[in-house]
Simulated scan of single mutants.
Amino acid sequence: MRGFVMTVAVCALATFSLATHAKALNKNDRFVCSWGSEIAAGAQQSKLSGVTLYAARKRLQSRKFPKPWMRMTAMGITEQTYNSRSRLKPPAIKQTYYEQCARHAMAQR
């Protein structure tokens, strides 16, 4: 029971932190962080399901991206995700990526 309470407290704190970062970020930063977190979560899902890095990169190559910088950025995020030893579930990766991206964007100001 104590572990459950601790988990709920951590989730509540993370949600509050995420909301605070979202308010302080401009629209472009929110878009970039959200997009990157989706890419990281997808890469983690592929990694955990046994898809090779080669196959994941091939899938990204065939995907259409609305902005020219997105393809290479997605490749980098995917490669970093595969190189990581993390076995976290994709939603946790998504949240962690977004929080760290938001923190980085705020530090840039």
Score class of each variant (00 low, 15 high):
residue 1 M to K: 14
residue 2 R to E: 15
residue 4 F to T: 13
residue 8 V to N: 08
residue 11 C to V: 10
residue 11 C to T: 10
residue 12 A to S: 12
residue 14 A to Q: 01
residue 15 T to L: 11
residue 17 S to A: 11
residue 18 L to R: 03
residue 19 A to Q: 03
residue 21 H to Q: 02
residue 22 A to S: 07
residue 24 A to G: 00
residue 24 A to F: 01
residue 25 L to A: 01
residue 27 K to N: 05
residue 27 K to W: 03
residue 28 N to S: 05
residue 30 R to C: 04
residue 30 R to T: 06
residue 31 F to P: 01
residue 34 S to Y: 09
residue 34 S to E: 13
residue 35 W to L: 08
residue 39 I to S: 11
residue 39 I to D: 07
residue 39 I to C: 12
residue 40 A to D: 11
residue 41 A to G: 10
residue 42 G to I: 02
residue 43 A to M: 12
residue 44 Q to N: 06
residue 45 Q to C: 02
residue 47 K to T: 13
residue 48 L to R: 15
residue 50 G to T: 10
residue 50 G to M: 14
residue 51 V to K: 15
residue 51 V to N: 05
residue 51 V to W: 02
residue 52 T to C: 14
residue 52 T to K: 12
residue 54 Y to A: 15
residue 54 Y to W: 07
residue 55 A to M: 13
residue 57 R to E: 15
residue 58 K to T: 13
residue 58 K to D: 13
residue 58 K to A: 08
residue 61 Q to G: 08
residue 65 F to V: 06
residue 65 F to L: 01
residue 66 P to G: 12
residue 67 K to C: 05
residue 68 P to K: 13
residue 68 P to I: 06
residue 70 M to F: 05
residue 70 M to N: 07
residue 71 R to L: 09
residue 72 M to C: 04
residue 72 M to Q: 12
residue 77 I to C: 01
residue 80 Q to A: 01
residue 83 N to M: 04
residue 84 S to M: 05
residue 85 R to K: 09
residue 87 R to M: 07
residue 87 R to D: 02
residue 88 L to N: 07
residue 89 K to R: 06
residue 90 P to F: 01
residue 90 P to G: 09
residue 90 P to C: 08
residue 91 P to K: 11
residue 94 K to E: 07
residue 94 K to M: 08
residue 94 K to F: 00
residue 95 Q to D: 00
residue 100 Q to E: 11
residue 100 Q to W: 09
residue 101 C to I: 04
residue 105 A to K: 13
residue 105 A to W: 05
residue 105 A to N: 07
residue 106 M to Q: 11
residue 106 M to L: 15
residue 106 M to H: 08
residue 107 A to S: 14
residue 108 Q to W: 02
